[in-house]
């Protein structure tokens, strides 16, 4: 970072601020920062502390130090935790290898303004606009025992395929539902990034005789590096932090265990205990790694 003393010739900074400017700047930065720290970081740290205690979440004077008990309980006595880890991993892999690449390719094609691209863009983006509650209702319509798909197969309720209950299907059903939103979301981010890539670059490549795939791989994709990182981080975070979709379908029961629901299930409701806080911290630690990687990339140039 350059400072005023080392760069006296830079005219782009005023040498001093008037007092009122300083106050204004203080307000500009102070109010948002205070709000953010008070409502996000402070509570996050508090929860980290609480994860080492026994507490019902009600009477503050009854907080008892528990050491690592909650974590031990999770790691050694709670098989559902490992089930959830498994589901979250599948989720992550699915997003990484299937949903996200599809979103990127889609964005690439739409950006080339193929026939009907306007309609396609809206069609694929539509699910992103819907609330999770609505998404749940819509898919329930298709897949519940007396829903569309079972109706199509001609199965009565008693013999209906158990799309949400049977382990052979449920995770894939949820993956498809999640991708339904995720692909549109990634497409949109990537489209925004593609707008920033010089069109001349791509044209030059095509004229040079490069195939479509080569152009994408050798020219466009590398030029998109910053967006790629964002997309990667969003993919990781969305798959680890997933909550709404599963909560809408299964409520807080363990129909399809994922970390986000385990946190909620253990921290809210009647059975609240700080085991939920410990789950939240585990989830936090899992997400913070990609966050750090992302921030390092993002701010490398600024730090220089």
């Amino acid at each position: 970072m350059t400072t005023e003393t080392t760069a006296p010739s830079t005219p782009r900074r005023r040498r001093f601020f008037s007092k009122s400017d300083k106050i204004t700047l203080g307000f500009f930065i102070g109010v948002p920062t205070f709000l953010h720290v008070a409502l996000v970081w402070f509570p996050a740290l508090a929860t980290m502390y609480l994860s080492f205690t026994y507490w019902t979440g009600i009477d503050i004077s009854k907080i008892q130090w528990a050491g690592l008990a909650n974590y031990e309980n999770i790691f050694f006595n709670t098989p559902i935790f490992w089930d959830a880890m498994r589901v979250n991993t599948v989720w992550l892999l699915w997003f990484f290898f299937i949903a996200t690449p599809l979103g990127i390719l889609l964005a690439y094609q739409i950006d080339r303004e193929i026939r009907g691209h306007k309609f396609y863009q809206s069609a694929y983006y539509l699910p992103v606009v819907l609330s999770l509650a609505v998404t749940g209702i819509i898919w329930n319509f298709l897949l519940r025992p007396d829903g569309f798909v079972n109706g199509l197969l001609g199965l009565p309720t008693s013999q209906a395929i158990s799309f949400f209950g049977d382990d052979r299907y449920n995770i894939w059903v949820i993956m498809i539902m999640a991708s339904w939103r995720h692909i549109g979301y990634i497409m949109l981010l990537y489209l925004a990034g593609l707008k920033a890539v010089d069109a001349a670059l791509r044209e030059a490549a095509t004229i040079d005789g490069a195939t479509e795939w080569q152009t994408f791989r050798k020219v466009v994709f590398p030029a998109m590096r910053p967006v790629n990182i964002i997309v990667l981080v969003i993919t990781i975070i969305e798959s680890l932090r997933a909550f709404d979709m599963v909560y809408i379908i299964y409520g807080s029961s363990g129909g399809l265990p994922i970390l986000g629901v385990l946190v909620f299930n253990n921290i809210a409701g009647e059975g609240a205990s700080m085991k939920g806080a410990a789950y939240a911290v585990i989830l936090f630690l899992l997400t913070i790694v990609p966050i750090i990687a992302y921030l390092r990339q993002q701010f490398r140039e600024d730090v220089k």
Binding site: H36, V37, F42, I237
Partner: peptide, 16 residues
């Protein structure tokens, strides 16, 4: 701080 904060899970902060 801001960017990282945006990425924290909501359930982490809800009780406090």
């Amino acid at each position: 701080l801001f960017t990282a904060g945006n990425l924290l899970p909501a359930q982490l902060v809800f009780i406090p």
